[in-house]
Design a protein around this nucleic acid. Structure first.
Lengths: 120, 120
DNA sequence: CCATTTACTTGCGATATTGAAGTTACTAGT
DNA sequence: ACTAGTAACTTCAATATCGCAAGTAAATGG
C-alpha cells in the first residue's frame, strides 16, 4: 500500500496519509528526526527499541516517499544522516495532536517539551 | 499492544496513541463514525471495503478502550449503533491534520467538507 | 417456505513483524 | 599484525496479523 495513484484504497486524504505513516513505527521515526536525531544508530536507540530490520525498511520507504533524504556526512566508510523534507516535517501537526491526545487519555505518558508542542 | 500501563512501549504519548489507533483501519472507522455512520453495515460499506472480520475486531477493541459505546436501537433481533465517547471524538483534530496533510501531499485525494475540517 | 438483510464468525493462505544473529567496512589500541 | 569495537545494515526463523471468501444466526417480507 503506497501513495502511487494507481492503487489508492480511496480518494480520502486520511486513508492516503495512513497508507504512508499509519503503522506503529513510522511516526515514531519521524518524531525522533523532528527531535534532532540524525543517524541510523540514534534512531535505533530510542526507548521503544525498534527492530533494526524494520528501521531500515521504513527509512527506505520514507526516502521513496520523499519524506526524507539521505545526506552523506563521511566517506570512509560512507555514512549518511537522515533529514526530513518539508513533506516529512509537515507531519509535525499530526504528531502534536497525537501527543496531546495521548497525554490526555493514556495514563503514564510524559508531557512533551513545549519546544516540541509549539514548533511549527 | 494496548494502553494498559503495565505494558507500555514507552512513556511517549505519541507511541501510546499509536498503540491504539496506529494502523490502517482504526482511524478510518472513527472517520466514518464522526461523519455520522452508526451501524455495522454502514461502516462495512465504506469505499475502502474493510474486511468484516477486521471491522468487528476493531469495534471490539475501540469499545474495550472506551473510545466508543454500543447502544441498542432495536430488540428483535438485538441491534446496536456504535457511538463515539469523548475520548473517541477527541481524535478529530488528529483526523483533521492527517486530512490536511493527505490533501497537500497525495495527488488524487478529494477535499474534505468544511463541516468536517472545521468542527471541534 | 424461501429469499433477503444485518451483523457477525470461521478458516485459511499470504503477508508482515519480531528478535536474534550475522555481515561489511572501517578505526583505534596493543 | 591482531583484536576489539562501532555503525549500519541484512538475513533468518518463528510468530502474529491480514485480507478474502464463505458460513452462521436471527429475524422480516412476500
Amino acid at each position: 500500500m503506497n501513495s502511487d495513484n494507481q492503487f489508492l484504497r480511496s480518494g480520502c486524504p486520511i486513508v492516503n496519509g495512513l497508507d504512508i505513516f499509519g503503522d506503529k513505527w513510522t511516526l515514531v521515526i519521524i518524531r525522533d528526526l523532528v527531535c534532532g536525531k540524525k543517524t541510523y544508530s540514534e534512531l535505533a536507540n530510542s526507548p521503544e527499541n525498534i527492530p533494526t530490520n524494520r528501521l531500515a525498511e521504513r527509512l527506505k520507504m520514507l526516502e521513496a516517499e520523499n519524506m526524507l533524504v539521505r545526506e552523506q556526512y563521511q566517506s570512509k566508510p560512507k555514512r549518511y544522516t537522515y533529514v526530513l523534507t518539508k513533506k516529512g516535517r509537515d507531519t509535525l501537526p499530526i504528531l502534536q495532536e497525537v501527543a496531546k491526545w495521548g497525554n490526555n487519555y493514556v495514563e503514564g505518558t510524559w508531557t512533551p517539551l513545549k519546544s516540541f508542542m509549539e514548533s511549527t
